[in-house]
């Protein structure tokens, strides 16, 4: 059975991931898949963009891809 709502897309959850290791936007989207959060694609885009604006993580390019990360 689908289990939407198992995982919540919150600022704290994103902060925890980005403190652990640099991630691309797609890496983050994999952590907060719509089927896990119960959000729509549009909601996911909007909420994640707002969270990233607030966190304003540092960026670095690894293997030609932009990664976000936060220092503890």
């Amino acid at each position: 059975t689908p289990s939407s709502g198992d995982i919540q897309l919150t600022e704290e959850a994103v902060r925890r991931y980005l403190t652990r290791k640099p991630m691309t936007t797609k890496d983050l989207l994999k952590k907060f898949q719509t089927k896990k959060t119960g959000l729509s694609s549009e909601q996911t885009v909007n909420v994640l963009a707002q969270i990233l604006k607030r966190l304003n993580p540092d960026r670095k390019v690894v293997h030609d891809k932009m990664h976000f990360y936060l220092k503890e």
Binding site: T24, T25, K26, L29, K30, S41, T44, V45, L48, A49, L52, K53, M66
Partner: peptide, 20 residues
């Protein structure tokens, strides 16, 4: 699908780049 994830990632990054 992965192409949907690509589109979502592109939309987020576009919004962040406007912000900066």
């Amino acid at each position: 699908s992965s192409s949907e994830a690509d589109e979502m990632a592109a939309a987020i990054e576009a919004e962040l780049n406007d912000f900066i």
